[in-house]
Structures are given as C-alpha cells and as structure tokens.
C-alpha cells in the first residue's frame, strides 16, 4: 500500500469516527514487524478545533485464512475502551477499523492518542528511582488499575469478531503441555513443574474476569513516576485475576532490580494492599500457582524462540540468546517449587 493510500484511508477512518475534518501526516515509523507496523501520526484538525496532536496507528495485516491467530484490533479497541471507561489508565482509542480502499490482504488499523512517558524498562526503573517516593506510587497505581480491570464483567464488553479465549487452570496446563511437546529437545524441569502444578491446583476465582495478559514493566507508559497507560492489549482473555498479578511480579520483568518484586520498582505488599483497597480479592495460593505457571510458560517461550533460530525461521540474535536464558527461568521455577516437594 502506498503512503497516499494509507493517509487517505486513515483520514477517512478518523473522519467517520467523528474527529474530522482534519489533515494528517506520517511523522515516522516506530516499529515494523512481519504483519504489524506502528507509525506516529501528526493530526491537524481543520478550522479552529485546537492545535495539532500526535497519534499512534497500529496497522495489522489481517489474514482471514488464519482467523483466530491474530486478534482483531476492533476487539482490542473494544476491550481498551471498556477498561478506560472503568478507570484503568489505558490509551484513548481515536478510531479502529479496516482501511477502506485496501487491496488484499485487508489491513486493520487502531489509532490511539499518543501518551507521553517512558516505556523502556530500565529507563522506567531509573525514572521512578529518581523521585523521593521511588516506585510506590507506580506500584499502587498498578494494583488499582488491575483491580478496576478485573471488576469489569466480561459479558458486558461487546466484541465485533470473536469471543475472548477463556483460560481455566486445566486448560492452561494443557496449553503448557502442548507448547512443551512442540519443542524438539527435552526440558525435564518444565515437565516436572507441570506435574507439580497439576498436583497442587489453586482455589477457584470468585468470578471470571477480564485479564490483560501482558501487564508488566515494558508494557506500561510511566510518566512523573506514575502509571500513564497500560499498552499491548492483544493477549487479553478471560480468566483468573491472579494471573495478571503474578505476571507483573515475575523475576524476568524486574530487569535486574530483583529485590523489588513488582516490576523491579515496587514491593509486593504495596501491590497487594492497593489491589485489595480498590476492591480486588487477593488469593495467595492462586498468586503462587500462577507465578509458577507463567514462569514455566515464559521459559518454554524462550526455548521456542531458540528453536526458531536453530531451524532457520528467525535470524535474530536475541532469539539465539534466548536459548541460553531458558535456564534462568528453570532456576526461578525450581526455587518456587522447593517448598512444595518433600
């Protein structure tokens, strides 16, 4: 698709979402993946409707033949808007839809207002460490944001394309086993962990909630040492709230700042208290179970990245290095399991 087509399509989309008349220009490309691009736009409203503002457009090639492998951005927009309406700091969706005059494959676009702040994990850690309050404010905001997200009734979110996947404990164990069985080399630590997790199931959640699925340092926009917005909602699903709380506390996402359990910036106690104060119900047994399950999942994921490199499906040095990071997750997992084996 040429840039003129792209701009015309985006302008039409923004106008039908009620933001027109306007003119827009591409400022620069932020990321370019196999079937996903992110670009920064400058939008100038016509007339006297305020000055120009920046927006982020995510463009996703939607291969209808592989329906279900990529979530529709329309559904992502619906979830983000529902979260925002319930007080979760999330980006403001300006427009979402298919580009009108696109030639195949169809391209879906999600346009959001740019939010100022830092997302790169180590810079986030530096920026919150610099102020007197450290990471406490950010930690409490994360607890509050997750409590508000988990309070949303998933049935009240109307989705255009397909229902959200439901993760139960049993289904998650099957998912882990399938991912492990797909790896060509044996990984007995992960097999052992799956056995122990199946042996030691957590309590049921009081109700099924909307789960962000990737709420962690790196996917949070942090401004003035506080949470400005949660990003990357493409893994959203329905499940146990403790999954989200466990994920943000995984050692992997502390980026070397290991003594601060919450994303490397905060204390677990502050997160727990903020979550409970905002109406969330903290279940320690499920928190521990999901911490182990998600550690295993990420370890298996790193091993899968290395397989992609070894088999020539990726030539990324990061993926090559992932193969030698698997052992870190195994170490964490065995540490977590230590108390549960006689």
């Amino acid at each position: 698709m040429t840039d003129e087509h792209l701009l015309a399509g985006l302008e039409q989309l923004m106008t039908s979402a009620g933001h027109g008349p306007l003119s827009l220009t591409v400022d620069r490309e932020l990321t370019a993946g196999a079937n996903r691009r992110t670009i920064r736009l400058i939008i100038t409203p016509a007339g006297l409707d305020g000055g120009p503002y920046a927006a982020i457009a995510q463009l996703v090639e939607r291969d209808d033949a592989r329906e279900g492998t990529t979530r529709s951005v329309l559904d992502e927009a619906a979830v983000v808007s529902a979260a925002r309406a319930n007080g979760v700091p999330a980006v403001e969706v300006l427009a979402a839809g298919r580009l009108p005059a696109a030639t195949p494959p169809p391209i879906e676009v999600l346009v959001t207002r740019e939010v100022a702040g830092e997302t790169i994990p180590r810079r986030v850690l530096r920026s919150v460490g610099a102020v007197e309050d450290g990471g406490r404010k950010l930690t409490r905001s994360c607890g509050r944001a997750l409590a508000r997200l988990h309070a949303i009734d998933p049935a009240a979110v109307s989705l255009a394309q397909e229902p959200l996947p439901v993760f139960t404990v049993a289904r998650y164990l099957d998912h882990l086993t399938e991912r492990l069985d797909d790896l060509p080399d044996p990984h007995p630590t992960f097999r052992f962990a799956i056995n122990r997790l199946a042996h030691d199931l957590p309590s049921d959640p009081p109700k099924r909630s909307l789960i962000h699925g990737d709420f962690r340092n790196g996917n949070l926009i942090v401004d003035a040492a506080d949470l400005a917005a949660a990003l990357d909602w493409e893994l959203v699903h329905i499940g146990d709230p403790m999954e989200d709380l466990a994920w943000i506390c995984l050692r992997t996402w502390r980026f070397g700042s290991d003594s601060r359990e919450v994303g490397g910036f905060g204390r677990l106690d502050d997160l727990r208290r903020a979550y409970a104060d905002s109406g969330g119900r903290w279940r320690q047994d499920a928190f521990e179970w999901w911490t182990m399950a998600r550690t295993a999942w990420w370890g298996i994921g790193l091993a899968a990245q290395a397989v992609a490199f070894v088999e020539g499906r990726s030539n990324s040095l990061v993926h090559a290095a992932s193969g030698r990071r698997v052992v870190e997750l195994e170490y964490d997992l065995l540490g977590l399991l230590a108390a549960r084996v006689g």
Binding site: V327, E328, E330, Y331, A338
Partner: peptide
Amino acid sequence: DPGSVHRVLSAAVGRRLAIARPSY
C-alpha cells in the same frame, strides 16, 4: 521421588547457570 528429581534438576540447572549467567 519428587524431592530427588528436584535435587538432581537443581544441581543441573546450577551448572548450566554458572555458564549462562553466573551472577543470577
């Protein structure tokens, strides 16, 4: 025995970690 499996896996992981990331 899960305890024995855990011990053997932990020792093996410790040896691999000494190569991949000794400070971890």
